[in-house]
Design a protein around this nucleic acid. Structure first.
Lengths: 342, 342
DNA sequence: AATAAACTTGCAATCGATAGCGCATTAGTT
DNA sequence: AACTAATGCGCTATCGATTGCAAGTTTATT
């Protein structure tokens, strides 16, 4: 069963004109008489003519499609970003194709390579397991506009939109310290991600600033970004079986935060009395949780819109872009009960 | 700045072959000698050749792209559906383009018409404000495969995947009744949506079954699907200003449920003592809310995968499909504190 | 009236890939 | 040796739309 649609040829035949005349009439060329234009335009409207995008793409050598690579859609942070991306894209006449990496490097390579032929530009947030950037560099060298967001590539050129991760983590850690916590654990995605390095640095510096000794066994990385509950469960067990377990946790990813909360809840570990928790999260209902969850919230929608605007700007720029911007968005901090002092 | 990619022509030139030979070699045609094939395939791999999708689409008259129309991505129910859709689509070699309607009829018409030229088939969940189905019927008549999910179109043909909405609402209402509530309000999207009609029927029949008088002023519809807090706020104020306000609420959409919860929380109305709440929701953390939220949860990911499988099946079917399936998924019910007896 | 200028419109090539058909060249048959 | 069959490859039209150029028609100019 195939979808039959009206082509310029059909219109030409009916109106006894050539396809070139029809084409020119539809794009309101000065070469065509008003009379003919009206005839063509009216008829085209009556049969609901829409140009075939593939033919157009082929001819114009562009697809008016954007590719976005993220770890997972079913994650409030990323779905908010997508909402932002979609809104700007639609407004400027672009479609969006989403690729999920599920934090896997091979999937990311595949996604990027696949997308490369179908899109005019890409929005990329690296996966947790990404070790090499060759697949991205290669495309860039061939002229593919790429904007990095959230999990940016430090060593590659290109527009970048990210949060102030250092500040987010520093403030959260300091907040815990102010509330009397000294034994503070850090759980994040792997630190080959620049954002995690940044957050770790914020955490480290806050400890240092308040002269709290740094303990290596309080620092944990989830290789798969905490996508599965089990991964976080193992980390938590590690932490809790220490001689001197931490009293508070700083979690550095939406999924990890959620799964930490879930773990503590499941094991009847009182938050914050037995374990305080504060985490990066863009979930909607954190304030209504029991106890309410302290979070560092990123400006996800804004990140999506800004990145998309930069990307489209780069795609449509006549001359190669050499001057790249790096937009830094300030995260919002919400201190709530899960990190209350004791 | 445009992206330059290798074409079959480039390969042909380098290897001193014709484009047709290259093409045939790449698709492993019997007409080409093993020797030549190897030459071509190896070279193609070395330059990272990928066929131009637009050219392929044009030639094959298909795009290997699916369109999906939903109200909003940043909604856990729909983002879970998308996750399901994407997984099946990727596996079968299809891309997915998402269109958001934000519950608006005009946007839906636009989305459907726009998509019509770029996709091989569509997955549609109607918007709350959809009154007419002409835009969809028109496409169907021209042969566009369309699968309806969640908010299906009762009067149109096509594969359908939905939840057992009647049962979900009936069980939830009955649960409230068993817990001693008699004055139960119903809040839903507009009832031009079949799923809302069904849920309303479940609600009605549960009341009837337990011989509880039905009150028209306890039934409220949010025209915009509760997308904005203000919309739900107004409904809540209406309900609470009644002489005899309800003691419990059955909410029929993710967003409405969340916003009801938010309203009650904000106005310090104790759940469930002053107002019980139970709602359709696919949020992740409802069990950890304070109080934990009773929900009717839909099998969102499954809905996405099943709908996509049906769609691809229909797209790839040689003969026109005449026998349409309607898959009904049973919702899961979680009784928690927000609907506890009093 | 003759020629130039201004309008309109059509022809044909093009974008990248595919496939029907035909043409060599080589192998096989009698 | 002569003819058929098989193999390997190239030419060309095609998908739908665009666009440079040519050509035809009408109107304006002298």
């Amino acid at each position: 069963m195939k979808f039959e649609s009206v082509t310029i040829k059909d219109i030409a035949k009916v109106l006894h004109l050539s396809t070139s005349t029809v084409s020119r009439a539809l794009r309101d060329s000065y070469e065509i008489s008003e009379e003919t234009k009206k005839l063509v335009v009216d008829y085209a409207k009556s049969v609901n003519y829409r140009p075939n995008p593939s033919a157009l793409n082929l001819k114009k050598r562009r697809s008016r499609t954007l590719g976005i690579t993220i770890s997972e859609i079913a994650n409030s942070f990323f779905s908010q970003i997508i909402a932002g991306v979609e809104s700007v894209a639609k407004e400027k006449g672009y479609n969006v194709i989403i690729s999920q990496t599920f934090e896997n490097f091979e999937r990311e390579q595949e996604a990027v390579r696949n997308l490369s032929q179908s899109v005019d530009g890409m929005l990329i947030s690296l996966s947790s397991e990404t070790k090499s950037l060759e697949h991205i560099e290669e495309l860039q060298q061939r002229g593919m506009p790429i904007v990095f967001f959230d999990r940016i590539a430090k060593n590659l050129e290109g527009h970048k939109v990210r949060s102030n991760n250092h500040k987010g983590a520093f403030d959260a850690t300091e907040h815990l310290i102010h509330n009397g916590y000294k034994r503070i654990a850090f759980i994040g995605n792997p630190d080959n991600l620049a954002i995690i390095k940044e957050r770790k640095r914020g955490y480290d510096e806050a400890l240092e600033f308040h002269q709290i000794p740094h303990r290596e066994d309080y620092v944990k990385y989830c290789q798969h970004g905490g996508l599965s509950y089990e991964e976080v469960e193992m980390v938590m067990q590690d932490l809790l079986s220490l001689d001197e377990p931490p009293q508070a946790i700083l979690s550095c990813a939406d999924k990890i935060t959620t799964n930490c909360y879930r773990y503590l809840y499941k094991h009847h570990i009182k938050i914050p009395d037995q374990m305080a928790l504060i985490g990066f999260s863009n979930l909607d209902l954190t304030e209504f949780l029991n106890p309410s969850l302290s979070i560092i919230q990123q400006k996800a929608v804004t990140m999506g819109t800004q990145a998309t605007e930069l990307l489209i700007q780069q795609i449509e720029s006549k001359r190669p872009v050499v001057d790249y911007s790096e937009i830094v968005l300030e995260p919002d901090f919400f201190a709530r009960d899960s990190s209350k002092g004791h």
